[in-house]
């Protein structure tokens, strides 16, 4: 791990009309980190992801990826550089079977270029590669699940499919927008090892979560947003102990047992 941050946010600001969805948010992300972003509803978490990935244009501020300013590039070019994202509302390609869903990212210029997938790349069989990726993400190869239409898959598999879609790009950073939400406890328990494995493989992760207990299991740094402003950044322990965070989440009354609410 070197000391150069892989992603730097410098005073990122986004206004919708007169409202500051993000107000001067700055932070550094280091390689192989898992950064959790938490905050109450409407605090600008998803807007932050949209700004980084170019889905909306920030009003001012800049995002540096390996020292290069990417804040004015179109979304597909940012994805092409290796910053993948999942969506909070999963919308796979419903009219395609699950494994064909991955053919699309595998068809992208980045996947053709990096092509490190076994048999992937320009001439590889994308169907075989996508089954491989799905298996890594917990789709049973021998079952019929990878061949099911995406519209028939249950939520847990759709979340995995979202992650698989990112993985097919061989990304350097994945921004996960609430991958745990809407899942049962056992489904989350089976997702956590997948996330940890991504980190071991050297992928840097930004995770937006409301499930704090599971997030603090995997994240090594946490950033708290409130009304578009950065409240605090630190290790999970530091963040939980902070008074401002408790106020943002639970109001200004004193709260003893935070864990029970998480």
């Amino acid at each position: 791990m070197n000391n150069q941050p892989i992603l730097q946010m410098r005073g990122v600001t986004k206004t919708f009309g007169g409202i500051f969805a993000l107000n001067e948010v700055s932070f550094d992300l280091f390689e192989s980190d898992i950064l959790g972003i938490i905050g109450p509803n409407g605090s600008g978490k998803t807007t932050l992801v949209n700004c980084i990935t170019g889905f909306i244009k920030m009003t001012y501020g800049e995002v540096l990826f390996r020292g290069k300013n990417i804040s004015r590039r179109p979304a597909y070019k940012i994805a092409d550089m290796g910053i993948a994202r999942t969506f909070q509302i999963m919308r796979p390609y419903f009219s395609l079977p699950a494994y064909k869903n991955l053919v699309i990212p595998l068809f992208s210029p980045r996947a053709k270029r990096t092509g490190g997938w076994r048999g992937g790349g320009k001439l590889g069989d994308r169907n075989a590669v996508s089954i491989d990726i799905l298996e890594e993400m917990g789709f049973e190869r021998e079952s019929y699940v990878p061949y099911k239409m995406a519209s028939n898959l249950p939520t847990g598999y759709l979340k995995r499919l979202e992650l698989a879609r990112c993985l097919a790009l061989k990304p350097e950073i994945i921004l996960c927008d609430e991958v745990f939400s809407g899942l049962s406890m056992s489904e989350i328990a089976s997702m956590v090892p997948l996330i940890e494995r991504l980190q071991i493989e050297g992928i840097t992760l930004i995770m937006i979560e409301h499930r704090l207990r599971e997030l603090f299991q995997v994240a090594n740094r946490v950033l708290v947003l409130n009304f578009g402003e950065k409240l605090i950044e630190g290790t999970p322990g530091e963040v939980m102990a902070d008074k401002k965070v408790k106020e943002a989440y639970f109001g200004s009354e004193k709260v003893e047992e935070v864990e029970t609410y998480a």
Partner: peptide, 13 residues
């Protein structure tokens, strides 16, 4: 047709 946002997120123009 299904989901153009995901296509953009897949690095496709």
């Amino acid at each position: 047709m299904d989901n153009d946002q995901a296509v953009r997120a897949s690095g496709i123009n």
